[in-house]
Design a protein around this nucleic acid. Structure first.
Lengths: 151, 151
DNA sequence: ATAGAACCTCAACCTTGGTTGAGGTCAACA
DNA sequence: TGTTGACCTCAACCAAGGTTGAGGTTCTAT
């Protein structure tokens, strides 16, 4: 009885999620997913793990590092099924992150558009290049513009 | 005459660009910037390097890897000042990249919005989670959705 | 009962984008 | 002529996010 229908081997999780076995090992090691072991020391995952893995991959596509994803996952119930409310909260936090990234990129694009308008790249005039010359004395030059892209 | 006014030491480039000396070494090593050497083997950079470094940092904020940035920089004149036309072309290529990223993120956000609407996370119904169940047989499951985020 | 697939651990390696430090040289000022 | 700060090279190290391989065990089907 090592394999009740509700348990998945790591190979099954890999096939169903599209994530390599080695990556699943890695996620487990980092504490993002959990398993129990059979008598023979093989991993068995609750079906729930498929959701978690999907959440991990989507979160990664938002640019979240695994450490942050771990925190978000940690807010889900440690065991048992995830409720719709849990999901709504997590997904809402994603959209905030997403909105922030989109805003950052859009702002940067606007800068670029202005730069296309002038094409100068002039140290004196172009807000895109050499902002350090307009900010003499601050000591960190180009950093100012770069910050606008949002982390 | 190691220091005509038009030449910058690496320390000056670092201070004016806000980029660490070690990073400038790194960029030179990767072929993104170039220098000549004094009799005493110290680097001297044309002022032009400040523009290139600024272009590198902005490009990085778009998420471009240095290898791609190197290609873009390679399209600029190898020596001599960069013309406004050069800049326009390069910046235009950035905005395309940016637009693509923004579109990808926006599409992902729309998915999330729909998911918030239902909150189901159901294997059968939720397009965000477990798309592999709707795509049985394709063998790469969640990859489908993830692709939407754009590279 | 036994082959072969699937699994296990652990360590080494990979890429990207750098930083840090050791050990040594150069340049500029007094 | 010091001496001090800026510079040089080269190698090692870091973080993230994994992959690869060696060497060994377990599971499942025949």
């Amino acid at each position: 009885m090592n394999r009740p229908a509700s348990c998945l081997s790591i190979g099954e999780v890999s096939r169903r999620s599209g994530v390599a076995v080695s990556a699943l090992h890695f996620y487990e090691n980092k504490g993002l997913i959990a398993s129990i072991r059979t008598n023979g020391n093989q991993r068995r995952f609750a079906r729930d793990v498929l959701r978690r893995v999907a959440l991990i991959r989507v979160s990664q596509k938002l640019g979240l590092p695994l450490a942050e994803i771990k925190v978000l996952l940690g807010r889900l119930p440690a065991s048992g099924p995830v409720t719709p409310e849990d999901v709504k909260a997590m997904v809402a936090s994603w959209t905030e992150t997403l909105d922030a990234r989109i805003r950052g990129l859009t702002g940067l694009r606007d800068h670029l558009d202005r730069c296309i308008g002038c094409g100068c790249l002039s140290r004196a005039d172009c807000p895109l290049v050499n902002p350090e010359d307009r900010l003499a004395g601050e000591g960190d030059g180009a950093v100012i513009l770069l910050r606008e892209a949002g982390a």
